[in-house]
Computed example of a mutant assay.
Amino acid sequence: MKRFALLLGGPLLATEALKERLKGYRLLAADSGGRHALALGLVPELWLGDFDSSPPWLQEALPAPKEVLPREKDLTDGEALLRKALEMGAEEVLLLGALGGRLDHTLAHLALAFALAEQGLRVVLSDGLAWAYPLLPGTHTFPLASKTPFSLLPHLEATLEVEGARWNLPLTPLRATTLTLENEALGPIRVEVASGRALLYVFGA
Rank of each mutant, 00 (worst) to 15 (best):
A14G: 06
T15V: 02
T15I: 02
E16T: 13
A17G: 08
A17V: 01
A17H: 01
L18C: 07
L18Q: 05
K19Y: 00
K19A: 15
E20S: 14
E20T: 15
R21W: 03
L22P: 08
L22M: 11
L22E: 05
G24L: 08
G24P: 07
G24Q: 04
Y25W: 15
R26P: 00
L27N: 07
L27A: 10
L28I: 03
L28Y: 14
L28D: 04
A29Y: 08
A29I: 06
A30P: 05
A30G: 08
A30F: 04
D31R: 08
S32E: 10
S32C: 08
G33M: 11
R35P: 01
R35Q: 11
H36D: 01
A37V: 06
L38F: 03
A39K: 15
A39D: 14
L40P: 07
G41S: 12
L42T: 07
L42K: 12
L42C: 07
L42H: 09
V43N: 08
V43Y: 06
P44I: 09
P44D: 07
P44Q: 10
P44M: 06
E45F: 06
E45L: 11
L46K: 15
L46F: 04
W47S: 03
W47Q: 05
W47R: 04
L48K: 10
G49K: 03
D50R: 13
D50L: 12
F51L: 12
F51C: 11
S53G: 10
S53A: 15
S54G: 08
S54I: 03
S54E: 06
P55K: 14
P56T: 10
L58H: 06
L58Q: 09
Q59I: 11
Q59Y: 00
A61L: 13
L62W: 07
L62I: 09
L62F: 09
P63Q: 14
A64E: 11
P65F: 12
P65C: 13
K66C: 14
E67F: 10
E67G: 13
E67Y: 01
E67P: 01
E67L: 14
L69Q: 06
P70Q: 12
P70Y: 12
P70E: 13
R71C: 05
E72M: 05
K73A: 06
K73R: 14
K73E: 05
D74T: 02
D74I: 00
D74E: 15
D74S: 12
L75R: 15
L75P: 00
T76L: 12
G78R: 03
E79W: 10
E79A: 05
A80S: 15
L81Q: 05
L82C: 11
K84S: 10
K84E: 15
K84N: 02
K84D: 05
A85L: 03
A85I: 02
M88N: 01
M88F: 04
G89A: 09
A90I: 02
A90G: 06
A90S: 04
A90P: 01
E91L: 07
E91I: 02
E92S: 12
E92P: 04
E92Q: 15
L95T: 03
L96T: 02
L96I: 08
G97Y: 12
G97E: 09
A98Y: 03
A98C: 03
A98Q: 03
L99W: 07
L99C: 07
G100Y: 02
G100H: 06
G100I: 04
G100M: 07
G101F: 09
L103S: 04
D104T: 05
D104L: 06
H105F: 08
H105N: 11
H105G: 04
